[in-house]
Simulated scan of single mutants.
Amino acid sequence: MSTHDDGFDQPTTKLSAGQFDGSGFSSGTGYAPAPLEPPADFDGGDGEENRWHGGLDFGLLILRVVLGGTMAAHGLQKLFGLFDGPGIGGFASALTGMGYTSQTTLLSWITGIAELGGGVLLVLGLFTPLGAAAILGVAVNIIYAKFAAGGRFFTGDGAGFEYELFIGLTAFALLFTGSGRAAIDKNTPWRRKPLPYALLGLLLAGAASAVVIVLFR
């Protein structure tokens, strides 16, 4: 009959003669408990509730589709006059009113392509850091132009920059979260580890914004 039964069968390792089992007593049987190994799926103690789950993927999909679809529609307005948009000529005139005095037609094309291309990339979840950087760069330039023209945060005549700020911050957030798994980017390095690619996207957006401000204003 066993004199020790705590309901837990612990693996053992053989001790040679004269060795101690770490408890302060020499082993009479020559065996001591082996160290326990954590299971392969051990999460470090964070708990199941802190793991990535499908709800996060769905939420990021909604953010991408709404932001990307909205910006792609704006790009179509500027490039082709769709959805009652101004077209290239009308947007070039609007840029002149915002203080852009050089090559406004070229800048209209650049802005429209950035909005359309960046929006499509976000909707698809394809090269998400690049798409988010394109949208962020456009938003930063419009915020700067409205602010430099004396625009306020809220205005009723379209001169406020609260909308562009919301768009820019949403794109900024997607840079750091990545696309989620409901995306073409699912198995890419920038989806699994978005931080370095987010910093690269920030650098690209900042550089593009600076170039536009210097060359076109």
Rank of each mutant, 00 (worst) to 15 (best):
D21G: 15
G22M: 14
S23D: 14
G24R: 01
F25Y: 04
S26A: 14
S27Q: 03
S27P: 02
S27H: 02
T29W: 01
T29K: 03
T29Y: 01
G30Q: 09
G30C: 05
Y31N: 08
A32C: 14
A32P: 00
A32H: 00
A32Q: 03
A32V: 01
P33F: 07
P33D: 02
A34L: 00
A34S: 02
P35R: 09
P35K: 04
L36G: 10
L36I: 14
L36Y: 04
E37K: 12
E37Y: 08
E37S: 08
P38H: 01
P39V: 11
P39S: 15
A40L: 12
D41E: 08
F42M: 09
F42L: 13
F42A: 07
F42H: 09
D43N: 09
D43L: 02
G44D: 04
G44K: 03
G44P: 05
G44T: 02
G44N: 13
G45F: 01
G45V: 00
G45W: 00
G45E: 01
D46P: 01
D46H: 05
G47T: 04
G47E: 06
G47C: 12
G47W: 13
G47R: 13
E48A: 07
E49H: 06
E49M: 10
E49L: 06
R51A: 05
R51G: 14
W52F: 15
W52R: 04
W52Y: 05
W52N: 08
H53Q: 07
H53G: 04
H53F: 05
G54P: 01
G55C: 10
G55H: 12
G55W: 06
L56E: 04
L56M: 11
D57F: 04
D57R: 10
D57E: 05
D57L: 13
D57M: 06
F58G: 08
F58L: 13
G59Q: 05
G59C: 11
L60R: 14
L60V: 07
L61P: 13
I62Y: 09
I62H: 05
I62D: 13
I62M: 15
R64G: 09
V65W: 11
V65H: 04
V66H: 11
V66A: 10
L67I: 10
L67K: 14
L67G: 06
G68F: 01
G68K: 00
G68A: 01
